[in-house]
């Protein structure tokens, strides 16, 4: 464990807590993409299949349970909670996220480190996580008026993978034979997808005006 990875995990944790806070307290998920939340639930479900077979640390297992629990409960809230589900703008959140799942699955079947069931699904979760934010970014472009909590959620979610990139650089420099192109490229693509959001987020923060993404 290094400071970059810890910062990344804490930022990631903060992003899901911000979202859960928003949905649980104001009973609203306006501006939140259910498609992205469903993709993240799939990412965690396929990433943490080894939770029962391999144990690294209490921290590792605890965080996996938190991410699994939070992502599935957010999907539950947005689909089935009587008050929250009414605030979900179904008409705007129309990204065909299944068109992201299949290519990631095919790519994982083609490019992986080992051709085993767990490894292919784990690689699939890496590719899917890289693009899982797309429905949310599209929704933000459409809804334009981004409330603070949703903006913070996307900002923290984008920041966590950025910290992970620093973690991979650190591990590459300090651990011999630590080379994982698949993880690195997927993580880099993921962070780059946030680039324009980050630009507009900092602009709005600097000029102290509401976050507006160009149409």
């Amino acid at each position: 464990m290094n400071i970059f990875r810890l910062a990344g995990d804490m930022t990631h944790l903060a992003s899901v807590l911000v979202l859960l806070l928003k949905i649980h307290t104001i009973k609203s998920c306006a501006g939140v993409s259910l498609k992205t939340q469903e993709l993240y639930a799939i990412v965690f479900a396929t990433r943490y299949l080894d939770i029962f077979t391999s144990f690294y640390s209490i921290y590792n297992t605890l965080m996996k349970l938190i991410f699994l629990g939070s992502s599935f409960s957010i999907v539950w809230y947005m689909r089935y909670h009587k008050t929250v589900r009414r605030t979900y703008d179904r008409e705007q959140d129309t990204f065909r996220h299944w068109f992201l799942v299949l290519p990631c699955l095919l790519l994982a079947l083609l490019i992986h480190e080992k051709f085993t069931f767990l490894e292919v699904l784990w690689t699939f979760s890496l590719y899917l996580e890289a693009v899982a934010i797309l429905p949310q970014l599209v929704l933000l472009q459409r809804t334009r008026n981004i409330d603070n909590l949703t903006g913070q959620y996307v900002f923290l979610l984008g920041g966590y993978r950025g910290f992970y990139i620093l973690n991979w650089i650190y591990r590459y420099l300090t651990e011999p034979h630590f080379v994982h192109w698949i993880t690195w490229i997927a993580g880099l693509v993921q962070t780059l997808l946030y680039a324009d959001f980050f630009y507009y987020y900092f602009q709005s923060w600097k000029n102290n005006k509401k976050l507006q993404l160009p149409a």
């Binding site: 990875r5 990631h12 080894d50 690294y56 590792n60 996996k64 991410f67 784990w122 034979h177 994982h180």
Partner: peptide, 10 residues
């Protein structure tokens, strides 16, 4: 065994 992969990461 602590394998050298990124599996110990979240």
């Amino acid at each position: 065994p602590k394998d050298r992969s990124t599996k110990d990461e979240l």
